[in-house]
Computed example of a mutant assay.
Amino acid sequence: MYLLPLGLSKQVYAGTTSLFFTVGNIIKAAPWLALARPATTVWTLMAICLLAVPSGVWLGWRLHARLGQRQMYRACYGLLLVTAMKLLWDGASGYLR
């Protein structure tokens, strides 16, 4: 959300967000594994989901190549709007209960 108004090139934007989330998830992984001690079924699910990573990377590369700068920013703002609406809905429905 912070990077969108900066108008970075789509390569810099995609690289920065990818690196940010990769580092953030690696930092979160060790404490989560130390606190949660996942069951065997969770480890199995993580291994199955890990198989989806190469196809996600491939799809991301294809989408990045197909979208122009303007289209990518529109898609990002659209996804941000959907996320904001979902969070507002969750907050309002939890508040009204």
Rank of each mutant, 00 (worst) to 15 (best):
Y2D: 08
Y2S: 07
Y2H: 11
L3A: 14
L4R: 09
P5E: 05
P5I: 01
P5C: 02
G7D: 06
G7I: 05
L8M: 15
L8Y: 12
S9L: 06
S9W: 07
V12P: 04
Y13F: 13
A14I: 04
A14K: 11
T16I: 08
T17M: 13
S18A: 10
L19M: 11
T22R: 12
V23A: 15
G24W: 03
G24D: 01
G24A: 14
N25S: 06
K28R: 02
A30V: 15
A30R: 13
W32D: 06
A36K: 13
R37T: 01
R37Y: 00
P38S: 06
P38H: 02
P38K: 01
A39R: 00
W43E: 01
T44C: 06
M46N: 00
M46E: 02
M46K: 00
A47L: 13
C49S: 04
C49P: 00
L51M: 14
L51I: 15
V53M: 10
P54L: 12
P54V: 04
P54E: 13
G56K: 11
G56L: 14
G56M: 14
G60V: 13
G60K: 02
G60I: 08
G60H: 05
W61S: 07
W61F: 14
L63M: 09
H64I: 10
H64C: 03
A65D: 05
R66F: 06
G68D: 09
Q69E: 15
Q69Y: 15
R70H: 15
Q71D: 13
R74G: 05
A75K: 05
Y77I: 07
L79Y: 03
L79S: 00
L80E: 04
L80H: 08
T83C: 06
A84S: 10
L87Y: 12
L88C: 07
W89I: 00
D90M: 04
D90Q: 12
G91L: 15
G91T: 11
A92K: 08
S93H: 08
S93D: 02
S93R: 05
G94T: 13
